[in-house]
């Protein structure tokens, strides 16, 4: 049995009257690429926010590699939760490389004093982070964009940089929120290859995506969410062939 990376137990969250996570239990293993689908407003992004620590669950527990996952965003990132954002949230005044260099879990010179001291060990750590960032960019075919201010890049490339930045966190859990929205052509293939490689390297990946063919190509399994509940977990084919779910999906999407 492959190692369990992420486990959610009876996670509940409500915003005022709306239940956005209704008793969610979920398990994710190393090497998994789990699709997370459902109509707009189903609570998919909210689930990522609960795992990564932007929101605290009202009840329920979340475990990462057997350890209870608690605390604010930055603690959980350091524990090994890497994530992207539906709306990218890149650091708009900074270059691609600078964006990436914010991402390593163990950050060289996070303390102001150490940063100012600019010691040899700090410089080596910076150089190592730089190499890793360039390596990730090369895998995406984006090494030439390293010095560009992120917002000057075409949209599809910005989406890739959002993922590249998350990959600077070498934790076991990778959460991708709609990585394909607005991405086409060669960037589409790059994104697929990257996700596959990361899973093959032992990460547990969860992908929220409205592009069903992307999920079909990539995921063996998917989860269907609606109104904060997981309605079904199964093979992508089973989910997409279910009349009930298709109606829910397109009924809501068209509204």
């Amino acid at each position: 049995m492959r190692q369990e990376v992420l486990r959610l137990e009876n996670v509940c969250k409500r915003f005022g009257g709306i239940v956005v996570a209704d008793n969610i239990s979920l398990s994710l293993h190393a090497g998994d690429v789990l699709g997370l689908i459902g109509p707009n407003g189903a609570g998919k992004s909210t689930l990522f926010n609960l795992i990564s620590g932007l929101f605290r669950p009202d009840t329920g527990r979340i475990y990462l590699e057997g350890q209870l996952l608690t605390g604010p965003l930055h603690r959980r990132a350091r524990a090994g939760v890497a994530r992207t954002w539906q709306h990218m949230r890149l650091f708009r005044t900074m270059t691609v490389l600078e964006n990436m260099l914010v991402g390593p879990r163990e950050y060289p010179g996070e303390s102001m004093l150490r940063s100012m001291a600019d010691t040899g060990s700090l410089r080596r750590a910076e150089a190592a982070a730089r190499n890793r960032a360039m390596h990730v960019l090369e895998r995406m075919g984006l090494a030439h964009t390293a010095g560009t201010i992120v917002v000057d890049l075409p949209f599809g490339q910005q989406k890739l940089i959002g993922v590249a930045r998350a990959l600077m966190n070498d934790g076991r859990c990778l959460l991708l929120d709609e990585p394909m929205a607005g991405v086409e052509g060669s960037n589409y293939e790059t994104m697929q290859r990257i996700v596959r490689d990361e899973a093959a390297a032992g990460r547990a990946v969860c992908v929220v995506e409205h592009n069903v063919s992307f999920i079909k190509d990539l995921c063996t399994e998917a989860v269907f969410m609606s109104y904060g509940r997981i309605l079904q977990r199964g093979s992508v084919d089973d989910l997409t062939q279910s009349r009930e779910l298709t109606e829910l999906y397109f009924g809501a999407a068209d509204a």
Binding site: L54, L73, H74, W85, F91, R92, N99, V102, G103, A166
Partner: peptide, 15 residues
């Protein structure tokens, strides 16, 4: 600077 540009995204990277 990352925090100034987007505090939530910066925190989600561990800072």
């Amino acid at each position: 600077r990352a925090m100034r540009d987007d505090e939530v995204a910066c925190a989600a990277l561990g800072r």
